[in-house]
């Protein structure tokens, strides 16, 4: 079966700086792929190329087997928007503070679908239900919501265009651990119900393990390891993956000891 999204030898340079050197991966239809790496490893630039915010210097992106061209016209960008959507890291700045949640979702529907006002209103409450927002929250502005609730709004907004691929760029990194778990469960639920595919970009191995089946590890702009998530995390082959895994505090981790043995942190 053709992968829903495929990256082939993606490269992006800004002036003389290489942000992404060589990235290839394939996302199965209905699958979930993790992109793991530290800050500066090129994860976010890769995501920006996937949604069309950046144009790759080299390589190409295939959506459902068709190469994605640079979207110049609004019509082309809308077409792409219905294929691939994105949820951002910061739930505080990714929503317009002046817009009510309902009108934020409504705006996306208006852009993409020829629906009547009543149809849109019905779809807005459906989307709100899907991510667990109530009517009172729909009428409010982002300022009245918590970080976790805002991220639910961002997910609902991304789902409004009914995309086939959802890119989650550190989408739970800014949330408390307990809220993180709620949002991750929600994402897993949504995938079960809608057969959407995820690309989860994260530096957090626990998060990647929880909701992805496949993963690629990026280091200095290139993919250094790829395969089933469990295998990569349990039996890392590449030196960098091993170090990444070792840097996660596990049970029995004592802060004082780490400081003493590691010298100055």
């Amino acid at each position: 079966m053709t992968p829903i999204l495929e990256a082939q030898g993606l490269r992006k340079t800004f002036g003389g700086n290489v942000a992404v050197a060589d990235v290839s991966f394939a996302l199965a239809r209905g699958g979930s792929l993790g992109i793991v790496g530290e800050s500066g490893s090129g994860k976010t630039t890769t995501a920006r190329m996937l949604v069309g915010l950046e144009v790759p210097t080299q390589g190409r992106i295939l959506f459902d087997g068709e190469p994605l061209e640079r979207a110049r016209s609004t019509a082309r960008r809308r077409e792409r928007a219905r294929g691939i959507q994105m949820v951002f890291q910061d739930p505080y700045s990714s929503l317009d503070r002046r817009q009510t949640i309902a009108s934020c979702l409504d705006e996306v529907l208006r852009v993409h679908f020829p629906m009547s006002a009543e149809q849109r209103a019905a779809r807005v409450s459906e989307l709100a239900d899907l991510v667990g927002l109530d009517d009172r929250m729909l009428r409010g502005r982002p300022g009245a919501l918590s970080g976790g609730q805002r991220q639910r709004v961002a997910i609902a907004r991304a789902l409004a265009a009914e995309p086939e691929v959802l890119i989650l760029d550190e989408a739970v990194a800014a949330l408390d651990v307990s809220i993180q778990a709620q949002v991750l469960n929600l994402l897993a639920d949504i995938r079960e119900r809608t057969s959407i595919s995820y690309i989860l970009i994260s530096h957090d191995l626990a998060v990647v393990r929880q909701i992805t089946e496949e993963a690629v590890v990026m280091y200095q702009g290139a993919v250094v390891e790829s395969g089933p998530t469990a295998k990569i995390l349990d039996e890392p082959q590449h030196e960098y993956t091993r170090r990444l895994r070792a840097s996660v505090p596990g049970p029995g981790w004592v802060p004082g000891k780490a400081l003493a043995s590691g010298g100055a942190a």
Binding site: V51, G52, L53, T74, R77, R78, E79, R80, A81, R82, Q85, M86, F88, Q89, D90, S93, S94, L95, D96, E107, V108, V111, H112, A154, R157, A161
Partner: peptide
């Protein structure tokens, strides 16, 4: 990011 999000939405 909210402006970027709108751009991605088309």
């Amino acid at each position: 990011p909210y402006i970027t999000a709108l751009t991605i939405q088309g």
